[in-house]
Nucleic acid binder design. Structure first.
Lengths: 202, 202
DNA sequence: GTCTATATTGGGATAGAC
DNA sequence: GTCTATCCCAATATAGAC
């Protein structure tokens, strides 16, 4: 609980700003979005908004984090036993919010490519977490005999994440490109691996 | 052949600029590279350099195109019967030039995400070409019995391209991440597909 | 073809009043 | 906490001399 009312209110305002920002960016895209525009969307001045975030880069990192939070709330539950379904559902949802895909692609690329970028460490951790979640899921599937033992959980997790990222580029270039189908194709390759004789009993 | 000496010289100068730019970016990365810095590298003023390119964005698109040209000269020959080997060799080479990977990731992401970006069409075509080359290669491998008939050439080509792009993000976040190994793992999944009973005779 | 110098803009950061 | 005002900087883009 917050120590003071005003503190709690500050937190709430931050959340309000982030939620509104996601909305604006989902519609307008990221490339042409300035702090000023996001400020307008919540009825604040640019300076007023920057009262809550120390810089533009911090603001955008928090927007990305907020998006993760929202997506996790929707697609996260039962991740352990449905990771691939959650991911395809999320990817399907992403086709409805091109601006957010663009935001993510841009911010993650900038931060990844520059070790000094303030969000670099954030993304390092984010990717490690996602890979770990998927690796765990794959191990579970292996234990259940639905994936061959010759599949390396960590490496395959990294591959799924990479494909998901890369498919977005091709989708942005051509919105008729079917990210979900391609992701499912990869999953089929994984579940069909050579030593996977065992079929789900069901 | 050029119509006039001065015209040919202009072309040569452009090439010189692009080659020098690749060199600078390979070392310094893309994020903090301005037109002025690239101009310095060839002993021109900023205005002098922009005599050869109409804008900054055009300049950077040409730098990316030049890189493709250089890479194609080295890794392109015999692409038809060794596409996957060429790709892994190229990816291995890329680990030596982080700045260029960063440049590519950034420029392609910006251009992909914005239909109005001057390089958007360039990348649409570039991806179509690469996918087509890989799809053709996969068909050849299928004809030779090295890949199962249940593999969809176009979709699999898109997947390989996506993985290649996405692996770069993870490598940028952690240079010890092995892009080549992960790409080879994907290729193994593809060649091991279920109905691929035929093994290379060799 | 190349330079110097300047225009222009876009936008982030900051100071200080309320 | 929020606003207004302003600062300031980075760059690109352009004009015009040589």
């Amino acid at each position: 609980m917050a120590r003071r009312g005003s503190y709690a209110k500050g937190i709430a305002k931050r959340e309000e700003i982030l939620t509104a920002a996601l909305d604006v960016i989902a519609r307008n895209g990221y490339r042409r979005t300035s702090v000023r525009e996001l400020a307008d969307a919540v009825g604040l001045s640019q300076a007023g908004l920057l009262h809550y975030f120390s810089s533009k880069e911090e603001l955008f990192q928090e927007i990305v984090r907020k998006r993760d939070e929202v997506d996790t709330a929707v697609y996260g539950p039962d991740l352990a036993d449905r990771a691939i379904d959650s991911l395809t559902a999320l990817v399907a949802h992403n086709t409805q919010v091109p601006g957010l895909v663009q935001l993510y692609a841009q911010v993650s690329t900038e931060a990844a490519g520059d070790p000094d970028h303030p969000s670099h460490a954030f993304f390092v951790e984010r990717y490690a977490n996602i890979r770990e979640e998927f690796a765990r899921f794959i191990r579970t599937e292996q234990a259940a005999g639905r994936i061959g033992e010759d599949i390396d959980p960590e490496a395959t997790a990294a591959l799924i994440v990479a494909a998901t990222d890369g498919l977005q580029t091709q989708w942005m270039l051509d919105p008729s490109f079917d990210m979900v189908a391609h992701l499912e194709q990869l999953w089929k390759l994984i579940t069909r691996s050579s030593s996977s004789g065992a079929q789900p009993v069901d």
